[in-house]
Amino acid sequence: MKILIFVLVILVSLWYLSFLATRLDRLHHRVETSWANLDGLLQRRAAIALEIARSDFADPASSLLLTSASYQAREAGLKERSAAESMLSGALGLLIEDGQVHTNSAERALFEELSLLTAKIRIAISIHTDAVSSTQTVRRKLAIRLFRLAGSAPLPLVYEFEFDAI
């Protein structure tokens, strides 16, 4: 009888561990896809920013600022990324107010695309942040740390976007 219970306990805990591992795996997957989504949107934003910088609308000074900010945003590593993107947001912010009253239709289309993209980026950030924070919560669980269920996967970082800036 004792052996039976012992075997049962072992089986249940094995099942629980495999359940936790799948759960964690899924969460890591969610972090990756939501990041891929956010990353793609940010790249598109940088491309639009470049286009605005090269249009007739931007004065030489803001053009220079935008160009350098968008290059930095595109080439930044993961750690510098959020600082670079915030800088791009700032540079774009300077132009957006003027952009809305501007009459040239081609440039207005650019700004419209930008504002649509910005709305999407906001949502993408919140989706990604949510994935990251659930992953962090689950990874704090004792069983997961004890049995190293996370393997070698790095702990996902919260992307500290200056939310108001975009």
């Binding site: 359940f19 799948t22 990756e32 989504n37």
Partner: peptide, 15 residues
Amino acid sequence: EMAMVGGDKITLSSE
């Protein structure tokens, strides 16, 4: 669209 970025389809979960 954002949810589908990974390109996966809906399947029954492994368990």
